[in-house]
Structures are given as C-alpha cells and as structure tokens.
C-alpha cells in the first residue's frame, strides 16, 4: 500500500506554547484516519500543517510527493492534491451553491463554464443536494452548507481530503446527514483524514484511529482500539464520552 501522507517527528509551537511535540503517523492510499483527542491536544493543528496552513519548526511532512515542510513548497500545487473542509463551512456567501463549487474549477483548472457546471452538478448529486444548486448559503441549513463545502472540495478531485471537526457546529440530525456523505466517500475509496469528536463514526468507518494528547500521538490502532484502550488517558477520554 502506498503512503500518501507521512508525518515524521513534527514539532510546532505558537510562541512559548508547544502544540505538536514530535508527531508521527502515516496514511496509506484509500485509508480513513480519525484523529481524536481533547481540545488543545494539537489534532486540528496537525491537520492544518498537512495542508501548509501552518508552518512547522521541525520534522517533515510528505503529502502526495510534496515536501510540505520545505520552504520552497508550491502551496498551490499541494492544494490541487489536498482538499479540506472546515468546521465553519466557509462557503462564499455571495455565490450560490453551484457557483461556490464552480469557482475553483474555472479559476484554477481554467475549465469553461459548462464543464465546471457539469462538475458542480455531479458533486452536488454526490452529497444529495441537486435541488439546492441555485440556493445561497444563507438559505441552507448548517448540514446542507457543510455538504456543499464537501462538494466544493470534491470538485477539484483531490487525492486526500482533510476534515477539520466538520460536524462540531451541527445538531445530531444534521451531523448524521454529513457523516453519511463522508461514509459514502470513504466507501468510494477516498483517502481521508478527519479530526473528529464523533467516536461512533470513528469506530465504524476509520481504518486507523490516532489518539493525540499533549501534542503527541498517544495511542494508535484500528477502530476497535476504542473498545479496549491501553493507555489510561484514552480510557478516560473514551469513558468520559459515554
């Protein structure tokens, strides 16, 4: 199995605050990796480093052949291979769902309007929102906005998708509809790294669970690891959620 994302001994500080303290893990093609942990454990930062939204001070990150830690990194090339979905959706408010999705294919891949619209329609269908193509973000529920954001990312056909607590702002019902879309993606073979608090989802869908604590990878294993944690910290973390 080929490795798509590889973090080796990554260190990152914000000023005096050490956020990542030697983080290492690997993600193979088609794998779904769930990164879990308390708030402040560094999991979101780790995810953002993979997409060069944060720079690291030490260690290396390889993503689809790009050396992300390298100062000479071409961020735009990296981001052709990596899609990211944020907790706060970040849809462009002045554009319809369809236009939101069409923007990157027309700007970045220089596709014509028609080709881009076909892609947008296709991606909206994949997240089950074909009938909302002409709606503006403010006319959509949080769950629908997040699905459009996923579709927007999908439209660029990334090799890896990152999900940064994408359901944290949603109620259980809307969370369910977003998770279903993500499950479909996983089943379709998409390589995914998700930072999440949805333990049930991690247990069910993830091929690998990474538990982070105090800026370190504390424990890692298959989804079933959550049923039998070895470290007391993970036991506490999982136990507190039940």
């Amino acid at each position: 199995m080929s490795v798509v994302v590889k973090l080796s001994n990554v260190h990152k500080s914000f000023g005096p605050l050490k956020v990542l303290d030697g983080v290492s893990f690997e993600v193979a093609r088609g794998e779904v990796v769930a990164v879990i942990g308390q708030s402040g454990s560094g999991k979101s930062t780790a995810l953002r480093c993979i997409n060069a939204l944060e720079t690291i001070q030490q260690g290396s990150i390889e993503v689809c052949g790009h050396a992300v830690h390298d100062e000479k990194l071409d961020k735009r090339k990296l981001r052709l291979d990596v899609g990211i979905v944020f907790q706060s959706y970040n849809l462009f408010p002045h554009l319809t769902a369809e236009q939101n999705i069409m923007l990157a294919p027309t700007c970045v891949k220089a596709l014509g309007k028609k080709a881009a619209r076909d892609i947008a329609r296709d991606c909206l269908a994949r997240v089950g929102l074909s009938e909302k193509a002409d709606h503006y973000p403010e006319q959509l529920s949080g769950g629908q906005q997040q699905r459009v954001a996923i579709a927007r990312s999908l439209a660029m056909q990334p090799k890896v998708m990152l999900f940064d607590e994408v359901t944290s702002a949603l109620d259980p019902q809307l969370t369910g509809e977003v998770l279903k879309v993500m499950e479909d993606l996983a089943r379709g073979g998409m390589t995914m790294i998700l930072v999440t608090h949805e333990m049930a989802f991690a247990r069910k869908v993830a091929s690998q669970v990474v538990y982070m604590n105090k800026g370190k990878v504390w424990e890692t294993g298959p989804g079933s690891m959550l049923d039998a944690p070895t470290t007391p910290e993970l036991r506490d973390f999982v136990g507190s959620g039940l």
């Binding site: 735009r76 970040n90 462009f92 990157a104 700007c107 927007r152």
Partner: peptide, 17 residues
C-alpha cells in the same frame, strides 16, 4: 473573514483570484 481567504487558498486560487 480571514477564513474565507483561507478557504479560497485551499481550493488553489492564487492571490489575485
């Protein structure tokens, strides 16, 4: 919001776009 710019950059748009 800064997050809007971040989202656009993550989609591969250049500065001008």
């Amino acid at each position: 919001h800064k997050a809007q710019v971040e989202a656009a950059e993550c989609l591969g748009l250049n500065r001008r776009q």
